[in-house]
Amino acid sequence: MKIVVTLPDDAVHDLTVQAGGSLMDAMRKAGLPVRAECGGAMACATCHVVVDEAWIAKTGRAGDEESDLLDMSDYRSGNSRLSCQIRLTDSLDGLKVTLQLDAFEG
């Protein structure tokens, strides 16, 4: 499946990834500079992405706990998600997200 990730420096990455894992894993496996400090344990908010409006219905919005973690981010928006909490299923083929500055390994 394909996903499109825009980095905070506006670089756009078209990635071909395997379905099944999390979006965070897929980005990391592709070598993108995503911090993801806790490795998907939902103990931080350093894999923060904003989901493209056209895809938010399919990914769904952040759950309660995820939302609590995102709340302190300066880059929070209505479509904010932790990428470790988005499971890549075939229905997300073509997914577009933007990695947020607090998740970017600058």
Binding site: A43, E65, D68, L69
Partner: peptide, 10 residues
Amino acid sequence: MAKDFIQSKK
């Protein structure tokens, strides 16, 4: 209590 965790940092 993720909310307390994240807010306590500040």
